[in-house]
Every structure is written in structure tokens, then in C-alpha cells.
Design a protein around this nucleic acid. Structure first.
Length: 276
DNA sequence: GCCCAGGGAATCG
DNA sequence: CGATTCCATGGG
């Protein structure tokens, strides 16, 4: 079990297993983290700018407090989930075992729901470098300036804008979807936080009401921000992996953790592709 | 069912 | 180098 200590604006978390910063922050689930020259990572989430570093099994979160850690980062980085137990449970299948071992440092983050929804709307039919660029312009133009960068804009702020305002993003046909999401969320028609802890299919159907949100974007939002770890986003990489590695269906032992296994498979496929 | 939208990145010839 | 392909969703 991890242990937590706080001192001088730094949270120290000891005994952390299965947590690799690069695997977790650069595996396609989050788009606003960057690596520093010393191997630490900096980024902004929930309106706060932090730097994360790691030495052996100890994680350091710089520029935070005990209250902020317990209110934000403890959940954000999924510190309370037993990843080694999950990997043990899914490893009764040899293929999953191999993939999970390869990707074992990935943690599925619990990000801000509205940021995650918008980010994956932007991600559709798109590649990661350009997704990052569009999100950066979104924050710089419509977020709030804080020490370290810009926060992700609120739904209310975006709902007040027009398509012409969003042209600066160069998001193409996705801009109108961002506006629809912002309006439904800021108007209270959809309360994203209420989708945490309810039936996954029901939460998914609610997200599908947003224009520009199909099954893939809905599942990414459920998995990366709304704590639904059985959500299983299927993009081209995963479809390819399912066909080639699993004959189309996940092993039964993986199903309770399908989303986490999805991340293991995704990372495995990507790295294999790049190293060919 | 098929094509297109609006781009940038990756891959190909 | 230029040409082609990739990509998730909704609308025509």
C-alpha cells in the first residue's frame, strides 16, 4: 500500500508499484503533460500546475499541498487502485500477461470530465501531435493564465463563444462539436460528474446525446475521467490488436478491467509499430 | 451505403 | 520532392 507524506509544498508517495511517468503521461490518454530535461513531468489539471518526479518506488508531486493532493492528485493518478492485483488477475491469459508486463507502468488517470470530453472530441479522426496543438490553442485562447501555463477553459466560457471565435483552434469540423458539448454541459442538460458510479451503459448513452460523440469518444471519456474501468474504447489500433491477438474477444478474466487492459494493449501496439 | 468535412502527420513512390 | 493515406462522427 502507498504511504503519503507532505512537506514544504511537496507530496511524497512511497511504495508505489506499477507507475511509470512516461508510460502513463504519454500513452494517449492525456495531452497536456510534457517531460522536463531531468525526467520529471509538468502539467496542468484541475486548474493546478504541478511537476511530478519519481525515484525507485517513490513519487514526488511538487507545488501541491496535503489538501490538494487528497482532493485532486490522489484520485487523478489512481494511487488507491491495486494495479499489481489487476495484472495478476488478467495474467491467466498468456497474451494479456505478455502485453500487461510490457505496459505495466501505465495508470489510467481520472482526469477532469469536461476537459476529457473535449479532448476526445478533438481526437476524432486525428493524430496525437495535432490533437495536442489544438488543445494548447484552446487553453491559451480561452483558458485562465496561471503560473506555469493556462487552465483548460470551462464549459461556460466555451458556450459563450461562436464558431468564428473557435477558428483560431484550426480544429476543422470538430469545432461545432466542442460548442455543442460546452452548451449541454454548461446549461446543466448533462452533468458529467453525475455519470461517475452509475451503470456504464446508461452513462454511455447520456454522452452519446452530445453531437460529435460516438462510441469511441464516449468510451474514452468514461474510462479516462468518469472512473468506468470496464469501458473499452475501440480505435483502429485496438481493433487490429483484437483481431490479431485475441480472435476478436477479450478473455473473461480481463473483462472486469477491460479499460485498463485496453491501455496495455494500445501501448503495446504503438511501441511495436514504432520499433518495426 | 458512400462520400465528404479540415487539417497535420506519416508513409509512399 | 509531391502524392496518397490515415483518422471518428454526422450529414447529405
Amino acid at each position: 500500500m502507498p504511504e503519503f507524506f507532505f512537506k514544504n509544498g511537496c507530496a511524497t508517495i512511497k511504495n508505489v508499484d506499477n507507475f511509470d511517468l512516461a508510460q502513463t503521461l504519454d500513452c494517449g490518454q492525456a495531452f497536456r503533460w510534457h517531460e522536463n530535461s531531468d525526467g520529471s513531468w509538468s502539467g496542468i489539471a484541475y486548474g493546478k500546475y504541478i511537476t511530478v518526479s519519481k525515484k525507485d518506488n517513490t513519487v514526488f508531486i511538487h507545488n501541491t499541498t496535503k489538501d490538494e493532493f487528497n482532493g485532486i492528485w490522489r484520485t487523478y493518478f489512481d494511487f488507491d487502485r491495486d494495479y499489481s492485483g489487476i495484472i495478476r488477475a488478467v495474467s491467466d491469459n498468456e497474451t494479456v500477461k505478455k502485453v500487461a508486463r510490457f505496459s505495466s507502468g501505465i495508470r489510467v488517470l481520472n482526469q477532469e470530465p469536461f476537459e476529457t470530453l473535449c479532448s476526445f472530441i478533438i481526437s476524432q479522426n486525428n493524430n496525437i501531435p495535432r490533437i495536442k496543438g489544438i488543445i494548447e490553442r484552446l487553453c491559451e485562447n480561452f483558458g485562465e493564465k496561471i503560473n506555469g501555463g493556462y487552465t483548460f477553459p470551462t464549459a461556460g466560457r466555451l458556450a459563450s463563444l461562436t464558431l468564428e471565435d473557435l477558428a483560431v483552434l484550426r480544429a476543422g469540423f470538430r469545432a461545432k462539436y466542442i460548442l455543442d458539448a460546452a452548451k449541454k454541459v454548461s446549461g446543466g442538460e448533462i452533468v458529467l460528474e453525475d455519470l461517475i458510479g452509475i451503470d456504464t451503459a446508461k452513462a454511455r448513452n447520456t454522452l452519446l446525446k452530445i453531437n460529435g460523440v460516438g462510441p469511441k469518444v464516449a468510451d474514452c471519456t468514461l474510462l479516462f475521467s468518469l472512473h468506468h474501468i470496464t469501458a473499452f474504447p475501440q480505435d483502429v489500433w485496438i481493433k487490429k490488436a483484437m483481431a490479431e491477438l485475441f480472435n476478436g474477444t477479450l478473455p473473461e478474466s480481463s473483462k472486469p478491467f477491460a479499460g485498463i487492459v485496453q491501455q496495455y494493449i494500445f501501448y503495446y501496439m504503438r511501441v511495436c509499430e514504432y520499433s518495426r
